[in-house]
């Protein structure tokens, strides 16, 4: 080992140590495949640079040219009549044929597209997401619902779910008296429940008033006699006959899901459908969160 080799090894060592120092101080996760490859590449470059420099600087000190000089020379600079180095020649031929093949046949047309990468990302996420939250606990669903709520629902229903003083449905309560009266008067089939259309005019006058007061009051106390018209479809417990018609007591899972799927237009205004934006698990999560903020 001569002095030059030692210097080069020292230089390579400094480069490697500097690289590792930078990586450590930047808190880079080396278990990530891409980071590990980059790190390996940096170390390889340091070693190869040092190695190649040493080899050729040493060779330059001892090498002498062989072979006959050509007759022609240019300003005193001449060439020798040596054969091409065989390694160089074969590499040249190989690259020539490879580039012909790559340029004309092998070029990966349509191998990559931005949309393709997006589709892969979505499919991969969907698979892990659905597995992870298939049997999620109520707490997990509620916290997922909360974060979803702030992105998709809060702009209209407000951060606390109060409907921004009448600009949207108040999610802490079920329905106001005016809303109930409107539905009784006009009927409704916007949520597309299996029970189908609620016909207009199921009750009127004082009966409708009584029903609306009873439901808006949270179904407490004695039900008015006219309320029997409602229970035939909405169930004796007013909870919607196990998903056949809307729950009148609160926001059960089917009510949240049907509303998100179909949107709704009432006396406050219109809510668009979120069919393409919200997955079934997210619907459950939103229902869990909305149930948690109910008064």
């Amino acid at each position: 080992m001569n002095a030059l080799t030692i210097k080069a090894l020292g230089f390579a060592a400094i480069l490697i140590i500097a690289t590792i120092y930078v990586v450590m101080s930047m808190d880079i996760d080396l278990t990530d495949r891409v980071n590990a490859i980059t790190m390996g590449g940096a170390i390889a470059i340091a070693v190869i640079t040092a190695g190649v420099s040493v080899k050729y600087i040493n060779q330059m000190k001892t090498d002498t040219a062989t072979g006959d000089l050509m007759d022609d020379n240019w300003d005193g600079i001449g060439e020798r009549t040596n054969e091409l180095p065989s390694g160089w020649a074969y590499t040249f031929l190989a690259v020539f044929f490879w580039s012909m093949w790559y340029g004309l046949i092998g070029y990966p047309v349509d191998q990559y597209s931005q949309i393709g990468e997006y589709n892969e990302e979505v499919l991969e996420h969907k698979a892990t997401y659905e597995k992870k939250y298939e049997n999620a606990s109520p707490e997990v669903l509620t916290s997922m619902g909360k974060s979803l709520y702030f992105v998709q629902c809060a702009p209209c229903h407000g951060n606390t779910g109060d409907g921004l003083s009448g600009k949207a449905q108040d999610l802490t309560k079920r329905m106001s008296k005016a809303q109930i009266l409107d539905v009784i008067k006009n009927g409704s089939n916007q949520l597309k429940y299996p029970m189908g259309m609620m016909p207009p005019g199921m009750a009127s006058g004082q009966d409708a008033e009584d029903i609306a007061t009873y439901i808006a009051g949270g179904l407490k106390g004695e039900a008015p006699a006219s309320y029997a018209a409602c229970t035939s479809c909405h169930g004796a417990d007013s909870k919607g006959n196990a998903g056949m018609s809307p729950d009148l007591t609160g926001y059960d899972n089917t009510l949240v899901s049907h509303t998100l799927q179909n949107g709704k237009k009432g006396i406050i205004g219109a809510m668009p459908s979120f069919k393409t934006m919200i997955t079934p698990i997210q619907e459950k999560a939103l229902a869990a969160y909305i149930q948690s903020i109910a008064q």
Binding site: P155, C156, K167, G269, P272, M277
Partner: peptide, 8 residues
């Protein structure tokens, strides 16, 4: 237009 309405 998909997720906001006139009144909003």
């Amino acid at each position: 237009g998909n997720y906001r309405t006139t009144d909003w």
